[in-house]
Design a protein around this nucleic acid. Sequence first.
DNA 1: GCCCAGGCGTCCC
DNA 2: GGGACGCATGGG
Length: 274
Amino acid sequence: MNKAEEITLNIGHCDLEQIAESGQCFRWYRRKTTGGTAYTVLDGADQALLWQQGRQLTIYCQKGHTEKWLHYLDIGTDYEAITRSIPKSDHYLTVAAGRAAGIRILNADLWEIMVSFIISQNNNIPRIKKTISQMCEKLGPEIEGPDGTYHGFPTPASLAHIQNLQGLGLGYRDKYIASLARNVRDGKVSLDELRRMSPEQAHTYLKSIYGIGEKVRSCIMLFGLGHKGAFPIDTWIKKIIAREYGGKFPVEHYKNCAGVIQQYMFYSERKNVN
DNA sequence: GCCCAGGCGTCCC
DNA sequence: GGGACGCATGGG
């Protein structure tokens, strides 16, 4: 195994448990710990152990990967400032933001996000997690990491054959994944190009991909490309907008942070019922 | 059996 | 450009 390294930092607006339950990451595994909360976190081919006690967060990861994990945790974004931009008159959002005061938007592995959110369509979060875990165990490379052996997310080449995808509970989504995997493997879809694009360009590019519609595209932009203006509308958000905003949410008020606001709403709403 | 879940492609108007 | 419909799967 490669050498590991560890960093401890103070961080606000960060609650690992809230993030783990926020429906943007599907491979966070809770660890037993005495004091605080800890998760083994898998992202693409990488692994880290995250451990939190109050505002103190420790990242234990492969040597040289600390910066990557700090970026993953979106260390550069001021969430308090975003929360302050909510008008006091919006009582619903003020309450939701308060309940979600530990949420961060992860900068996750683009390929894993694309496949994961294709799987997410017309699906529920426990099942999405189960399906993705099974997929990684069957098709992902086995890797020795700082926190033990794990499976990395399957490469495009290993998801390109639809026969390999049978029996994983993907349902009708298997053909979308196989198609995208083939195109990435063959260079017809370029993840590097996507990363270099403006939000508008990425929007157009993603639109042309079979199996990726408006909602999944927004999630890819938000969680995989860091475009925080994206505002995914799923069944939960639809419900909130109908109930709290008479069918029209003032998304234009949140130019470059609508995705953060959306995630406050999503987390708060789901916490209500769970 | 029904309804629902971080929807999408297709068909039809 | 918008609205119905079918789609795989599993949990409540």
